[in-house]
Design a protein around this nucleic acid. Structure first.
Length: 585
RNA sequence: GCGCCCUUAGCUCAGUUGGAUAGAGCAACGGCUUUCUAAGCCGUGGGUCGAGGGUUCGAAUCCUUCAGGGCGUACCA
């Protein structure tokens, strides 16, 4: 409809150019807006205001000229010039009612578009260290990334959802050491567990399993394990203590057995994360292992590529990437003086790899604490000859957890945290998925567990699901009363739908495609959430004021068409957010 | 110190990329059910859009200064 109005205005302006009223090289930007106030019609155009300066005329005069030259249209019943020079359009009821047939015909596909056709985009999200179960903080990234992926898919993009498994580095070695020590405890050794180890009960569980699988094959005496270590904190140095333990584990176990322990921890936790996310309605096309970069020598290859372009230099025994040449505050080390490559070097290789896989655009969903990395990663891409604009980083602010008034403290290391799984079990997938994306991602967010758990109307997801279920119940009610919904008859009688609540509901339904398009292009799933709340509200108002199961079969079928169209849009929108659309509540 | 993000009703948040009189939910108050799900609907009150300055026909939105909050500023990952 907006396009139609824009075409009409373009016609008028072309006619005015031909008549010599406007310069022929005038290229107006025609923008059509939905009006806030229905007194201003349904759609409004501000073109007369924007043209005023270049055309050197008063806005209202321009608006009048345009109105006088607008071609006739069946969809427009009235135009008016208002305020400083807006042109308001009143849309005919026929045109408004037509949306119902479109929704029912297109069903699941209603609202989708093809702006991303032929465009490959990767969305990488969550990507938490596989050192423990996901906690509630990861949930927001998961819900956001999944919804953004769905939005892009609904806009025609070819989407790959990817999880970057940080299975290399010190934290993983700490996990392996923690696991081994728990295993030794299982085997009956008297081990004092390090303060800096992973203390969560899940490490014990994995250790128990490992012990069942391999028996005492990995056992060494406590005295051997604990001999000559730096003293643990707080009296000593907990970092040195744990590093000693890692070295001891590698030493006593040997490479093969150390890897066995390491992999037992990694595989178990990664699989657990995978299942957890699946239960959260989040599934990936690809799990990318950080270790594989090193194994395939991709890190060195990336560094060499930078070196070829002279973006790397040596200083103090280390290799530095000259990121300052691309806007970074300081240069960054890619290879340490001990010969080890840095995490940043892996990241360069990883991002190079992404684009070499043929992605047109890469979206990274990162926790807000990683914002300092954006500049350097983009710098690396630029140095590698890849347009940094093809990398889009979306920062997700932390959700601060509350139980009622009380703030919940979280720490993975100490094991006292609320896991995503607990959240799912307590709150439910639907409420938590919805709750996470009702707020703009870069907005700080208070997540009150009590509130999310309560099945009250504070929880907007119930409000929407309830609306959906109510419509499904109507169909059942019809059947009970030996009536059936005849959509053909209903669609032929749409002109009967002229109650104010019906018009409002139809207009809201008609808005869905542009809300979806806008949410997708801005990566803002919260727009869908808010839209659905409004749509459900419009439906409840309608439902409360009018009856659908009535004897007048023409009106009944027409109303059912409207209700079913509303139901379809709710189902489509909820699906994008990963929320179920139940038939009963 | 420097950099990024944020500040809108008592609370939690929207605000369609610069449009007309800034909205919703919750909380408060008052109504609505012999009826298809009251997990609902209708109504009332509530604002210096953090503060000042600027840009223009027009600013919550863009620029600038300041205040407050969060995060980051590793040869950690």
């Amino acid at each position: 409809m907006k396009q139609h109005i824009a075409d009409l205005i373009q016609h008028a302006i072309d006619a005015l150019k031909a008549a010599g009223e406007f310069d022929t090289d005038l290229v107006p930007k025609i923008q059509i807006d939905n009006t806030k106030d229905k007194q201003h019609g349904d759609l409004a155009c501000n073109v007369a205001l924007t043209l005023a300066k270049v055309a050197r005329r008063k806005p209202r005069d321009i608006a009048q000229l345009i109105c006088d030259h607008l071609p006739a249209s069946d969809s427009v019943t009235k135009t008016q010039i208002a305020g400083p020079g807006f042109i308001n359009f009143f849309i005919s009821q026929d045109a408004t009612q037509a949306i119902i047939g479109k929704v029912l015909e297109e069903a699941d596909h209603f609202g989708r578009n093809n702006t991303g056709a032929g465009h490959k985009v990767q969305v990488e999200f969550v990507s938490a260290n596989p050192t423990g179960p996901l906690h509630v903080g990861h949930g927001r990234g998961a819900a956001y990334g999944a919804s953004v992926s769905n939005l892009l898919e609904a806009s025609g993009y070819e989407v790959e959802r990817e999880y970057y498994v940080n299975d290399a580095g010190r934290q993983m070695n700490i996990l392996a050491a923690s696991l081994w020590l728990r295993y030794l405890q299982q085997a009956g050794e008297d081990i004092v567990f390090p303060s800096n180890g992973y203390q969560g009960a899940y490490v014990n569980d994995i250790a128990k399993q490992l012990h069942q699988q391999v028996g005492d094959a990995l056992t060494h005496s406590a005295s051997q394990v604990m001999a000559n270590l730096h003293v643990d904190g707080p009296e000593g140095d907990k970092e040195k203590h744990i590093d000693d333990l890692i070295a001891r584990a590698k030493d006593l176990l040997g490479e093969t057995n150390y890897e066995l322990v390491f992999d037992a921890g990694l595989d178990s936790i990664r699989d657990d994360i995978k299942q957890d996310l699946h239960g959260f309605g989040v599934d990936y096309q690809h799990w990318f292992s950080e270790r594989s970069l090193d194994q395939d020598d991709q890190i060195n290859r990336a560094i060499n590529k930078l070196q070829e372009q002279d973006h790397v230099y040596e200083d103090g025994g280390a290799l530095w990437f000259r990121s300052t040449a691309f806007g970074d505050d300081k240069d960054r080390v890619v290879k340490r003086d001990n010969g080890q490559t840095t995490y940043f070097a892996s990241d360069i290789a990883y991002h190079l790899n992404k684009f070499e896989r043929g992605m047109d655009t890469v979206i990274n969903v990162w926790g807000a604490d990683h914002h300092g990395y954006i500049t350097r990663v983009k710098a690396a891409l630029q140095a590698l000859g890849i347009d940094p604009k093809r990398l889009v980083v979306k920062l997700v602010q932390f959700a601060i957890l509350y139980r009622g008034e009380e703030r919940v403290q979280m720490s993975t290391r100490s094991g006292s945290f609320v896991t995503l799984r607990e959240l799912r079990e307590e709150v439910g997938k639907d409420a938590s998925r919805f709750f996470y994306v009702t707020r703009k991602s870069e907005q700080h967010m208070d997540f009150d567990l009590e509130l999310a758990k309560s099945q009250s109307k504070d929880n907007p997801v119930y409000y929407i699901q309830y609306a959906h279920a109510r419509i499904c119940t109507l169909i059942n009610k019809l059947a009970q009363d030996n009536m059936a919904w005849d959509s053909v008859m209903g669609l032929g009688q749409l002109e009967k739908l002229n109650e104010a609540a019906e018009i409002t509901l139809m207009q809201q339904i008609a808005l869905y495609p542009e809300v979806l398009a806008n949410a997708a292009s801005n990566h803002e799933p919260h727009q869908i959430a808010h839209y659905l709340k409004d749509l459900a509200g419009n439906f409840h108002t309608y439902y409360n004021a009018h009856r659908m199961v009535i004897d007048d079969e023409q009106l009944r079928n027409a109303r059912m068409c409207l209700c079913m169209a509303a139901r379809q849009v709710m189902a489509n929108g909820l699906d994008l957010l990963g929320v179920d659309a139940p038939e009963h509540m």
